[in-house]
Design a protein around this nucleic acid. Structure first.
Length: 457
DNA sequence: TGTGTCTGCCC
DNA sequence: ATTCTGC
DNA sequence: GCAGAATGGGCAGACACA
């Protein structure tokens, strides 16, 4: 029953209903004294219980047998049951962080570009690995199971580890891009077949030797973490961290993170509001990536050449657009990505209205795209949009800069979103294929470096 | 056996 | 993932 | 400020079909 109930379906509303129903059906039970609103209190309790034990088949029976007010005792964190990983809120710059956390001790950690994992090690030596969405990933990472068992200290009999699994080249001692990690086989993997190695970057500890740590401060949890494992290059490392409140120092650390193939930084309070909050994107953890910052990060000017009808609340307007860069040599527009986020409702309405009048019956002969992409409508090339992205990737479907980096693959964008409409540019002035290729090449992963990033010496 | 398409899960 | 919006 | 709902690229695996 639980297996088919997926989140996204108004989970919080469902939990609130559960809590309220419990109060109504427990007419004769006694809520603790000095409570203003038993209804609200019950909702809090149910949500709290579910956050540490997200299993309806446990919560509901416990509610029925021992009531809401006993729920904190009857439903608590359980080894082997994954809790939702704590999330971080996007932040636009170092100054915003310093401001938000003034008078508070906080730490900055590298944000590694891999796959989130919650590793449970049980007293009997068995291991379970869960993904960000509580999928059981144990069969995908036998190497991680082995590493963790080997590198835990002998005093450690059970633990829950929060970490990032990152593709790693042990010969060159280098982190590999997320795209490499994602090529790993996913089912029934056996050690000898593994082609992409993984390094564990550990950053939190939720449970140790029978003791839940969720309600402890990060300072305590981190101490537990550091005491529980041996590091080993290419297999298990603690996430790089500094504790500082100096703007320049943090800025340098951010640059170091990006240089080290990381996405940016995660900033966490050490003591104040420093408990582990499952599933919450609370203020306690902030994330800082270059592409969140205004006037820094990869930004491109692209032309909408086609669109798809919107669904749900986008019914009646376009829901997504196909974007292209311009190849001056071949005088053609090459698809680079679709885009469907970054539009306010007003802007989406404007753009839809504007482009509806530019619809053409067939794609232009000078549009280069994969036949597998089948938009609902095609446009005359008329507008230029500024788009931001986290990364550029080699694409199996898009055609931007095809023939420059790879003979028959183009380039696409990771996490594309609209920044603004460039009223001042014509489509021919959009980002060129050469520029796209240049941006791809200068990413830190690709050592085909033109060495123009000289430090002064 | 090989190829194209779709789905579910990573980000 | 990112972003926007109603509550 | 939070929850929910729009939307992105790209991969392995499942499935359908030749």
């Amino acid at each position: 029953m639980q297996a088919k109930l997926r989140i996204g379906l108004a989970e919080q509303t469902l939990l609130a209903a559960l809590g309220q129903a419990a109060v109504y059906s427990e007419k004769h039970s006694t809520p603790p004294p000095n409570i203003q609103s038993p209804l609200e209190e019950a909702v809090k309790i149910v949500k709290q219980a579910y956050s540490v034990l997200p299993v309806y088949d446990k919560i509901v029976p416990a509610l029925l047998s021992d009531g809401v007010w006993n729920l904190p005792n009857t439903c608590s964190f359980t080894l082997g049951v994954p809790v939702g990983p704590m999330l971080a809120k996007p932040t636009k710059g170092v100054s915003e962080i310093v401001q938000k956390f003034q008078n508070t001790e906080y730490t900055c950690e590298f944000k590694y570009d891999g796959e989130r994992a919650q590793i449970h090690y049980l007293e009997d030596g068995s291991v379970e690995i869960y993904s960000r969405n509580a999928e059981r990933n144990t069969g995908k990472f036998p190497d991680v199971v082995a590493a963790v068992s080997r590198l835990k200290k002998s005093s450690v009999g059970s633990f829950v580890l929060d970490c990032e699994l990152v593709a790693y080249d042990r010969e060159k001692q280098k982190i590999l891009p997320f795209q490499v990690l994602s090529t790993r086989a996913r089912k029934n993997v056996v050690m000898s077949d593994i082609k992409v190695n993984v390094c564990i970057y550990a950053f939190d500890m939720l449970y140790l030797n029978g003791r839940p740590l969720i309600q402890e401060e990060l300072k305590v949890r981190r101490e537990c973490l550091y005491e529980s494992f041996e590091e080993e290059a290419g297999f298990f490392k603690f996430a790089s961290a500094i504790t500082s409140n100096d703007i320049d120092e943090i800025q340098k650390f951010l640059d170091a993170a990006v240089d080290g193939s990381c996405e940016g930084l995660i900033i966490k309070t050490m003591n104040k509001d420093a408990t582990y909050e499952p599933s919450k994107r609370s203020l306690n953890w902030l994330k800082l990536k270059k592409d969140y910052m205004d006037s820094i990060g990869d930004s491109l000017d692209l032309v909408p050449i086609a669109a798809f009808h919107g669904r749900g609340k986008r019914t009646g307007v376009y829901g997504a657009f196909l974007l292209a860069c311009y190849d001056n040599n071949n005088e053609e527009y090459q698809s680079i990505c679709k885009i469907g986020t970054g539009f306010s409702e007003a802007v989406l309405e404007e753009r839809s209205a504007s482009l509806r009048s530019k619809v053409i019956p067939k794609p232009k002969s000078y549009y280069r795209y994969a036949e597998t992409i089948t938009p609902d409508v095609w446009f005359e090339p008329t507008e230029v949009w500024e788009v931001k992205a986290a990364d550029l990737t080699i694409s199996p479907v898009h055609r931007a800069a095809i023939g420059i980096i790879d003979p028959d693959k183009g380039i696409s964008l990771r996490f594309p979103r609209l920044v603004r409409v460039r009223e001042d540019k014509t489509p021919e002035q959009a980002s060129s294929s050469e520029q796209v290729a240049e941006m791809y090449s200068s990413q830190s992963h690709n050592q085909s470096n033109n060495q123009d990033d000289n430090e002064d010496d």
